[in-house]
Design a protein around this nucleic acid. Structure first.
Lengths: 335, 335
DNA sequence: ATGAAAGCGCTAACAA
DNA sequence: TTGTTAGCGCTTTCAT
């Protein structure tokens, strides 16, 4: 048995199939009795309009895409990716859109080609690009494709493309001030190094500035956002000569690694050294001591990003909005 | 400027547009020179085939849907949902499929209607249904819709629908045996109560059996999978008369809550009481002490589930396969 | 080896 | 208020 089409419904209701279409699209000027007859036919035949035909005819799709840059598809535990993806899905579903996912990576121009291809094939209407160290050429590509795009966690001031990010500088200043007030004098930040215009850069730069403003000794050591790198970085600091009394991790995952290393090395936290994170993921409550961290409103950011994307997609699109949401220091036990 | 179509390419290459189609679909019997000419035209016009038209004509879509049952879209931190969703996305992308997400809930029959509607509208080709306490009527609905479906983490023996789950009983037996060998005599399990045929039921039942087999005192207390409920349950146990020397949480998230409660109450873990989880999420490494838990191979399960779904979708579909993958006890510090 | 014709299911003019 | 006509971009016979 094959699926019912418009014509089947029309035949069943004894009208022409365009009338059925009119009923479906709430067109005015349809006699209530006809309307009812059509509705009944739809119900008894269990008719559902074919989405592909509709999309073809209207040349519009109700799917969005979130593209993660620099995140491996196979790291299915990445809390950052997972949280953001879920937030996007929740928000776009609420707006009547589906959401698919793609992965971009710097090394693979083909990943960009695939995304472009999927867009031009009309598989999705616009993309949320999540990634903090896209090159400006890469950003430029999106504009060239004329693909509605919102950059997430990556500001691109020069190119004025729509973006949503958080005020990392503010959070970092709050954190450093808090540490200074506690009498901490020697601050070390664990964070990725060689990426510009990224959230890492924002966090790093404001760290340095804030530390200097407070007259504190400071050092930056490298991590790659992972638990293991946080652990390794703390061990390196412990073995090194700088001897920090406050270790700031660039994200919660590295902070968890640092905490573990401290525990292993019998370093008291926060007695001997404070350890703090950045993100405020749920597991910041799971560590012992619980993690002092900077809350980043990812949920809210995702909501805004989807909103921005949808206005960008809609016909009378305005100019590029660049949003930055406030962060907030969350003081728990570790700092 | 509008997007190039098949006819534009044909005009540019000086052939009929069906020839272009043939080139695109690797049809035999096309002269290499013509072929090359067409390929050039495609390249210079930056042509991409319209997906909607293709889907309409071929009546097939390359999108899958994962539907979460009993998981709130707004709990964007849920590690279970997040991990599984990511695993599905990773796997289906690798197979050339997109993946969208939907949410079902027991209270809302409309959520099921929406899913059905989306399927019949040909928005996706098949669904992965994640949820551990669907009623059998609900399961039956999927069969009635004739929608290719694989149930994840929910076995439905009576209805022989395809499913992928893990051998929770085995993991639980390993865990209880391990605890018994350590000399633990009084075991308490924190787990949701009133759901049948679910993973919770599987874990609960094998807990009781295993405890009795080892001649251990045992008790079950209620939790709802959340961090807070784990914390509350541990506090209740501490205040109660059963006085367990081993607390088993039904998942890692509740175990984290129990650990926190133990810490607050100055209960030594694992000295006074062991605490263990179930899942082996990444954050099981973040707790202090690190969490002894039962590893559930969600990544592998997701891979298999997508595989099963794709064979179910493909024309010559065979019968329903019900997979169960082995679990494994991971001994860390907490038990 | 290539071109012509038909039609997937729908919407949006227009005509009746 | 309803029916007629056309066509979205593509694949698939069937002729040539």
């Amino acid at each position: 048995m094959t699926r019912a089409t418009l014509r089947d419904v029309a035949a069943h209701a004894g009208v022409s199939y365009q009338t059925v279409s009119n009923v479906l699209n709430d067109h005015p000027s349809i006699r209530p009795t006809t309307r009812q007859r059509v509705l009944d036919a739809i119900r008894t035949l269990d008719y559902y309009p074919n989405q592909a035909a509709k999309a073809l005819r209207e040349s519009r799709v109700t799917t969005l895409c979130c593209a993660f840059y620099g995140h491996s598809a196979s790291d299915i535990s990445d809390p950052y990716r997972n949280l953001i993806q879920s937030a996007f899905v929740a928000q776009s579903n609420q707006s009547g859109y589906d959401m698919t996912t793609a992965f971009l990576s710097h090394g693979q121009p083909q990943s960009f080609q695939t995304l472009k291809s999927n867009f031009l094939q009309q598989r999705f209407a616009g993309a949320l690009v999540v990634g903090s160290n896209l090159t400006s050429q890469e950003v430029q590509m999106f504009r060239d494709w004329k693909m509605p795009t919102v950059f997430f966690d990556h500001t691109v001031p020069a190119l004025d493309m729509p973006s949503v990010t958080a005020d990392y500088a503010q959070g970092m200043v709050q954190l450093v001030t808090h540490l200074a007030q506690q009498g901490r004098r020697r601050l070390a930040l664990i964070i990725p190094k060689d990426d510009q215009g990224s959230t890492a850069a924002a966090r790093r730069e404001s760290f340095t500035q804030a530390a200097e403003q407070h007259g504190l000794a400071h050092q930056v050591v490298q991590g790659d956002w992972s638990y293991d790198s946080g652990k390794a970085a703390f061990e390196a600091l412990h073995a090194g000569s700088f001897a920090p009394d406050a270790v700031l991790a660039g994200n919660d995952r590295m902070a968890a690694g640092a905490l573990r290393a401290a525990h292993r090395l019998n370093v008291d936290v926060p007695g001997d050294v404070t350890i703090s994170g950045f993100d405020d993921f749920e597991f910041a409550l799971f560590t012992a001591p619980t993690l002092t961290t900077v809350h980043v409103p990812y949920g809210e950011m995702a909501r805004k990003a989807v909103e921005l994307l949808l206005t960008e997609i809609s016909p009378g699109s305005s100019q590029a909005v660049q949003l930055s949401l406030p962060t907030q220091l969350i003081i728990r036990e570790s700092a």
